[in-house]
Design a protein around this nucleic acid. Sequence first.
DNA 1: TCTTTTTTTGAAATATATTATCATTATCGC
DNA 2: GCGATAATGATAATATATTTCAAAAAAAGA
Lengths: 158, 158
Amino acid sequence: MSEISTNFTERTIEYEQLLLDFKVLLKNNNLKFTIQREVILECLYNSDEHLTPESLHNILQNKYPDLKIGIATVYRTLSLLEDSKIVTSLSFGAQGKKYELGAKDHHDHLICTECGDITEFVDDQIEKKQHQIADKLGFKMLDHSMQIYGICQSCQQK
Amino acid sequence: MSEISTNFTERTIEYEQLLLDFKVLLKNNNLKFTIQREVILECLYNSDEHLTPESLHNILQNKYPDLKIGIATVYRTLSLLEDSKIVTSLSFGAQGKKYELGAKDHHDHLICTECGDITEFVDDQIEKKQHQIADKLGFKMLDHSMQIYGICQSCQQK
DNA sequence: TCTTTTTTTGAAATATATTATCATTATCGC
DNA sequence: GCGATAATGATAATATATTTCAAAAAAAGA
Ligand SMILES: [Mn+2]
Ligand SMILES: [Mn+2]
Ligand SMILES: [Zn+2]
Ligand SMILES: [Zn+2]
């Protein structure tokens, strides 16, 4: 596969660090670093969207047509990245999970039920309260997810 | 279908009211009141669990074998009840939605990632904060869902 | 570098969840 | 009861996700 140019759009220090961490993680688990795994990570890094496995696959097929990346590899890699806490997934509404890079700071989601648009937010007070609730109920809290559904500003004007 | 005895386990005032409301809703929308719709509502009312369409279908087939209720009807009725805000659904982890009667007061969920057990809770402070966040971001809030994931007390002891 | 071992890949088959189609049956106002 | 309309169950179709497997690629070692 050495003839395929990856032609990365952006390679910030932050991304380089992420990639390095990923390589270390792979090595520690006797896994191999492949061009497929790299382009998936890179694509997640350069996307602001919340991507489905399907949409990620489409993007990759357009961007790297010679790679002929398979949908199974996208699913496998997203699972690996999620297990490794590098990406997080979001499942709401009807069908399918959506993935985003977890390297950005934790946040919750405001989802417009009209247009599907997603706004991100964090509230420290809520975050703290969640821990308190889990403690009180004898739960060892690992994670949480919270979605607020409503009509966004632009959809209200229609 | 008049030969089928429904043999309801419990018929509280609360349930009678729920049923009445459901009948009004159906009439207002030119929909018909059927025995299938009634037993699905009744089953949801008498269950403490968070039911999948599949598990609800199994329960109904055991309880009313002569009805030979179809899985498609279960899906259709759950969608209708959800659209009508009579039941709410919960989708987390991998596969499938889980439904519960929304007539009980609103609450959020603590989910054990080991055994799948679900604990319900409400926190007024968080509820209030969610509205404030939506307001601040110009969102007309309609609903929300929040899940805390962790290890329950009994799973921690194993 | 060449060789060997091990992992990963894409394609296709399979599994699972959900929805659509359609002929038949039930509901309900008259 | 009659007729108009809606709902049903069986089945097919679709969408989503996972498994299988032979071929290819990556890492390790010589
Ligand atoms: Mn997000
Ligand atoms: Mn609940
Ligand atoms: Zn919107
Ligand atoms: Zn548990």
